[in-house]
Write a protein that binds this DNA or RNA. Structure first.
Length: 1133
RNA sequence: GGGCUUAUAGCUCAGCUGGUUAGAGCGCUACACUGAUAAUGUAGAGGUCCGAGGUUCGAGUCCCCGUAAGCCCA
């Protein structure tokens, strides 16, 4: 059995082979099944929607998921991971509408809801094949055979159950939310409909800056106001002014009080507005800023210019709490009217337009409603009781003012809503403006052109209007959600504490209602008068209720008659459908015998996906115990940071509300994948990277490794294919080369590692070093994975492979592999390298699952050391701390530094490495260094081709030392005196240095005080040896003897000859093991002497059986070594 | 407007609780090496550590205010 040797490698092909291997041997299932009984590591898959094609960012997200699942599998856990599909929701519906060429209006008319839902069901799984293909090709292991699908009856039943739990806790209520509404069409519009092209049109509206008169007692004394104060608030919808219940300011915004005169009534006023908007509101010829209050007195009614004077300044926060007189007192809010008409704070206030004070009408503005809710106490909306005792806004569903609104009662709030020819000359907005002007309540009235959304059907302006919605009272649970969140390990932490934590504290109630067709229907049936409700939590319950309804005569038959309660088989559940088109046929009967119809809305799809911890197991109807015992809590989830308020939130909310627990313990929120210029990828810009071409060109391993190693998952990734290529070349190329090198010689020597491992203490220094490094690496990589830091892990592994293993260990030990007989030393080298390769394969397998499985397979195939078919079934390496020798690692580092310094000196002097030199000198300051250098002396000598290392200590007297303060130590002690100390130490003479060295103390005179220094307070280094060629770095100094003796020269020549002969061998296509015969001639005696002197060396190195020096070699190869002419001829012997 | 993130060499990124010459890889330039060779080594050029202020004996690192980009929210 031989290790597989490669001529070249195509990583994508390797991946294909491995994929085949996995399939054939069922490796994924084995990796789960073999762990039966082991501790479970629960992973939840955030379901993608399969009605779009996957992009390169999905490779990123799924790589992260996969890495930790594979890692935990190797760590001995049983990692269950079910795939899932998110199948409901607006994008699906819109896609289908587009495909069928219909609009929402047509549903139920041109196409039945049933047919429409069928179309959605088909559309949603349209791209599943492509998704499955990507999943496979990128090596994402997830159970795709048994995914959870949100439109399946079992899933939907669980969702109903969850909702009912929440309902039973009293956390579900019916309220209203401000939505775009078309009075003429009588329907709400989705934000998507509003955002359709053409919906926004420029309109000219009458705008008013109202003067809201502050109630003097509530104005903070700090403002130092004596006369009446008016708050200025701007609105483009004056018809909402009767519904005003608050004014909102930005707490951090600067405001000013301005003394001036009203331009319509000419009465003196003082007004408040944002400082930065003064210029805008007092612009033009009409106003004139004055510097003193006195100048205002000269104003008289009718003057061309109105003077204004800026009196005081304050922050928005200072204004909060001021109460004001209602501007248009037609009605009072039915509830808590005492809390209305206050100044509150809001984040949404800007100073781009208006006055920096926002007129707030919670019944007609989403922002307004939000700010009102968040104020403490809450600002009540302007809702009054109608004839049926229902709370309604001052504008009815047709868009007309209710009777309460005095002279405006019955008028449409927009002239556009009147029938052709019936609109009054002066719109409501204009009439209101006129009234306000007359009452000294309008600071300014202007026409204003802005873009305003219109109903795409009626082409009339929309209203933002409070529409009925079902809510979950999340606000009751915010504190609990916040507390539970502190137990979740977020990567990065800031997303958890900041983005998510802040959101949790301020989250509003969850609006569940969606007026759509393809989704999970709200399982709420309501009597016509709205007084009786039924919330259904299971199919069994529904069937029972249907029976009652049949008995009451509201239904003819049970539409689920085929369904057998309690039968959990797929066949049984396939008989039912819980979608809107079916359940809307159901009429139930109330406790008092009244008919109940279903509330027509669907549940927000985010509730679907947030239910997956339970619904994927059809909890609690099946798997109840297992789920209760832990299947409902993920150990790990990972999604994009954009899911913070999406899936991460809904999971957390549902888990908190229903189970008072967390849905996940660890969560990685990854950033975006941008193009190489940092631009968002989009089809439109044409900069989107196709995952399939990338995978097929570079293979999944390099793609994954690049994504993970390049940036932390939570940072945005600038995806550059060049980078993938670099990873492939640098990391995979190096690792592959190292493996191939190993395979080549191990095969020649028949190394199969079936023998006992050579005890570590019997191996060479460099073997022990690389093993020590390997164990350090193992520990660090394990820690990194365990901390959900894949980037650290990847970088550690690649640094080890490139720097330690390949560029140092293999380079230094190359000869041990191909020279000499198969002895213990050689075995030791093979074993060490084998262990490194195998361990790296295991450590890196979670990130590069294909290629490293291949390498693992090749290694293990020969050695048979492990009984696993795949690295993914193997155990993650455990660091053996007893093999970690920090001292050894430190001295090897010293060897590397010394070598590097010598190389650089040689370079400077143009002395090639093949030319041996007699010695280097290293100044050593302490015993520790002496020991270190001695231990690695041999290594250094071979590496830099030097004959001897000479250690120079103090006694030599040739060292020139430098001294500097140990800032870290002295700084803590002497703080402010550091400058003086530093200066004094810099002035140390050689005698001073030797004094502190000898006596370990030094009295430093700072002029006013004397401080005692010990050796630990300073750093002494030797940076020069006068008269020698010296290089220095990081406290380490090396001097090189560059004298070349005749013997050295000859040896150099011999090495050059070896080199050239090796080249000839290669040029002539000789195999490594071919023996040769060499003939050499040269006119230079030094060459022939060299050959004679180093005959044995030459033969060994070049695998020559004999070596002849001849006088004349006409057919030989002409060599030119440092101007020496040599002819050489080689023949296979 | 708010929350969060990011900003260090031409590019991609390190930089530990603050400690005095800010690093790596890629790219570029030059040289070397040549039985791992579609590799490798050494050296060089390349930095206002986004800007301004502050704390400190000392700031890339801590604080404050900005700027720019990104995400989410409004």
């Amino acid at each position: 059995m031989k290790y597989k040797e490669y001529k070249g490698i195509n990583y994508a092909e390797v991946a294909d082979e491995v994929l085949e291997f996995w399939k054939k041997n069922d490796i994924f299932n084995k990796s789960v099944d073999q762990k039966e009984g082991a501790e479970t590591f629960m992973f939840f898959e955030g379901p993608p929607s399969a009605n779009g094609v996957p992009g390169i960012h999905h490779v990123m997200g799924r790589a992260i998921k996969d890495i930790f699942c594979r890692y935990k599998t190797q760590k001995g856990f049983q990692v269950k991971r079910k795939a899932g599909w998110d199948t409901h929701g607006l994008p699906v519906e819109l896609g289908v509408e587009k495909e069928l060429g219909i609009t929402k209006e047509d549903i139920g008319k041109k196409i039945s809801v049933e047919d429409y839902n069928d179309a959605c069901r088909k559309a949603v799984m349209k791209y599943t094949d492509i998704w499955n293909d990507l999943t496979e090709k990128m090596g994402y292991w997830v159970d795709m055979k048994d995914p959870y699908i949100t439109y399946k009856p079992k899933y939907m039943e669980s969702v109903w159950w969850l909702l009912k739990q929440i309902f039973d806790k009293g956390l579900i209520y019916k309220g209203y939310s401000i939505q775009p509404y078309s009075p003429k069409a009588g329907t709400g519009l989705s934000s998507n409909e509003v955002n359709q092209p053409g919906a926004y049109q420029d309109v000219t509206d009458t705008t008013v800056i109202g003067q809201f008169k502050a109630i003097p007692e509530t104005v903070p004394s700090s403002l130092n106001i004596s006369e009446d104060l008016y708050l200025l608030a701007w609105t483009t919808t004056p018809w909402t002014l009767p519904s005003n219940t608050a004014l909102t300011v930005g707490p951090k915004i600067d405001y000013v009080v301005v003394k001036t005169f009203n331009q319509y009534t000419f009465e003196p006023i003082q007004v408040v507005l944002a400082k930065s908007l003064v210029a805008k509101q007092f612009a033009g010829k009409k106003f004139n800023q004055v510097e003193g209050v006195a100048e205002l007195d000269s104003y008289s009614k009718g003057d061309k210019q109105i003077p204004y004077y800026i009196a005081t300044e304050c922050k928005g926060a200072d204004l909060i709490g001021i109460r004001y007189e209602q501007l248009l007192p037609f009605a009072l809010p039915y509830e808590n009217s005492e809390n209305a008409f206050r100044v509150i704070g809001g984040d949404f206030v800007t100073t781009e337009d208006g006055t920096g004070i926002v007129h707030t009408a919670p019944t007609f503005g989403a922002d307004d409603a939000m700010a009102a809710k968040q104020a403490k106490p809450e600002i009540p909306p302007m809702l009054v009781k109608d004839e049926d005792d229902n709370l309604v806004p001052l504008v009815d569903l047709q868009g007309r003012f209710r009777p309460e609104v005095g002279e405006f009662a019955g008028m449409y709030v927009k002239n556009e809503y009147y029938n052709e020819g019936e609109a009054p000359d002066k719109s409501v907005d204009v009439q209101i403006a006129i009234r306000l002007k007359e009452e000294n309540k309008a600071f300014k009235v202007e026409k204003y052109v802005h873009s305003y959304p219109h109903c795409w059907r009626t082409d009339k302006p929309i209203l933002y209007y409070p529409l009925d919605s079902w809510f979950i009272k999340v606000t009751d649970k915010n504190d609990r959600m916040y507390d539970l969140n502190t137990t979740i390990n977020w990567k990065p932490e800031s997303t958890g504490t900041g983005r998510f934590g802040n959101w949790l504290q301020n989250a509003n109630d969850w609006n569940l209602s969606r007026s759509r067709y393809w989704g999970i229907p709200l399982p709420i049936w309501k009597s016509e008068d709205g007084k009786e409700l039924k919330m259904i939590g299971s199919l069994a319950e529904l069937k029972e209720e249907i029976q009652k309804s049949i008995a009451a005569g509201f239904m003819d038959s049970d539409i689920y008659s085929d369904f057998v309660v309690g039968d959990m088989s797929e066949e049984n559940y396939d008989k039912v459908d819980l979608h809107k088109n079916i359940v809307d046929q159901i009429t139930l009967v109330s406790e008092t015998g009244k008919p109940m119809r279903r509330e027509s809305d669907l549940i927000d799809v985010w509730f679907d996906s947030g239910s997956m911890p339970y619904a994927q197991w059809h909890y609690p109807f099946e798997n109840k115990e297992a789920v209760d015992d832990g299947l409902k809590t993920a150990d790990f989830i990972a999604e994009g940071v954009d899911q913070t308020r999406g899936w991460f939130y809904t999971l957390h909310a549902i888990a908190t509300m229903v189970f008072d627990g967390v849905a996940y313990k660890n969560v990685v929120s990854n950033g975006l994948v941008l193009d190489k210029n940092g631009q968002k990828m989009s089809k439109r810009l044409g900069n989107a990277v196709d995952p399939f071409t990338t995978l097929s060109k570079y293979g999944p391993d390099a793609t994954r490794w690049y994504m993970i190693s390049n940036a932390n998952p939570w940072d945005n990734l600038k995806f550059d294919l060049e980078g993938v290529a670099e990873v492939q070349r640098r990391f995979f190329g190096t690792f592959f080369n190292t493996y191939n090198f190993f395979a080549l010689y191990a095969n020649l020597d028949g190394f199969d590692f079936k023998e006992q491992a050579i005890p570590i203490e019997k191996r060479t220094e460099s073997d022990r070093w690389i093993i020590s490094k390997l164990n350090s690496l193992t520990k660090k990589v394990d820690d990194a994975f365990n901390d959900y830091e894949p980037t650290k892990a990847a970088r550690l592994i690649q640094d080890f492979v490139i720097d330690d293993l390949s560029n140092w260990y293999v380079r230094l030990n190359r000869k041990r592999f191909w020279k000499g007989e198969y002895n213990e030393d050689k075995k030791s080298a093979y074993q060490s390298l084998y262990t490194c390769l195998l361990t790296v394969a295991k450590l890196g397998a979670p990130i590069a699952p294909f290629f490293l499985d291949k390498v693992y397979g090749h290694l293990n195939e020969v050695s048979g050391q492990e009984e696993h078919d795949s690295v993914h079934l193997s155990k993650f390496p455990e660091a053996d701390e007893s093999l970690i020798d920090e001292e050894l690692e430190a001295r090897m580092e010293m060897a590397q530094k010394v070598s590097s310094l010598v190389h650089s000196l040689r370079k400077k002097e143009k002395l090639k490495v093949r030319q041996p030199l007699s010695k280097i000198m290293i100044p050593v300051m302490n015993e520790n260094t002496v020991d270190r250098v001695k231990a690695v002396e041999e290594l250094i000598l071979t590496e830099v081709n030097i004959k001897a290392v000479e250690l120079i200590d103090d006694t030599s007297g040739v060292l020139v030392k430098s001294i500097k303060p140990n800032f870290k130590k002295l700084g803590k002690q002497y703080g402010p005196r550091m400058k003086d100390i530093s200066k004094a130490i810099a002035g140390f003479s050689a005698d001073d240095i030797s004094q502190i060295e000898k006596e370990n103390k030094y009295a430093l005179d700072l002029g006013d005080t004397i401080i005692e220094l010990t050796l630990e307070d300073v750093l002494i280094a030797s940076e020069d040896i006068p008269g020698w060629l010296v290089a220095s770095e990081g406290g380490l100094t090396v001097a090189l003897d560059i004298n070349i003796t005749d013997d050295l020269k000859k040896e150099g020549i011999a090495r050059d000859i070896v080199n050239r002969v090796q080249n000839l061998r290669k040029d002539n296509g000789l195999e490594v093991q071919d023996r040769i015969k060499i003939q050499i001639s040269s006119e230079d005696s030094i060459v022939t002497e060299s050959v004679k002197q180093f005959e044995e060396y030459l033969c060994i190195e070049t695998q020559a059986n004999n070596l002849l020096v001849v006088d004349n070699l006409a057919d030989g190869e002409e060599l030119d070594i440092d101007d020496l002419k040599i002819q050489v001829k080689i023949e296979v012997n």
